[in-house]
């Protein structure tokens, strides 16, 4: 079970969170067209390594947080609040 560092509540076990996948895709403007929405909903980089992703601390502060987690090792490098950015890059 992962430990997810919630920026508001501290490290909490994974089963307090719900997952929502890739946090690098950004919802397009409403008039951006079908291709933009297609990419938002469907196209995924699906990296083998560091992945910025959404987790909601549903059994805690209910914030949707960004978590940078390694999909190969499951290490967690950073987290940030819903409106905050993660650090530039993790080596």
């Amino acid at each position: 079970m992962h430990l997810i560092p919630c920026p508001y509540c501290g490290e909490r076990p994974q089963d307090e969170f719900h997952y929502r996948g890739d946090a690098t895709v950004k919802r397009p403007a409403p008039d951006a067209g079908e291709q933009a929405f297609y990419d938002y909903v469907y196209t995924r980089a699906n990296p083998r390594g560091w992945h910025d992703e959404w987790w909601q601390h549903y059994a805690g502060c209910r914030q949707w947080i960004r978590v940078r987690r390694n999909t190969l090792t499951h290490a967690v490098a950073a987290s940030a609040g819903p409106a905050d950015a993660l650090p530039e890059a993790t080596p």
Partner: peptide, 13 residues
């Protein structure tokens, strides 16, 4: 397991 992973390592929940 419910999250993206290439690890081939499952978890306990």
């Amino acid at each position: 397991d419910g999250y993206n992973s290439y690890s081939q390592r499952g978890n306990l929940p």
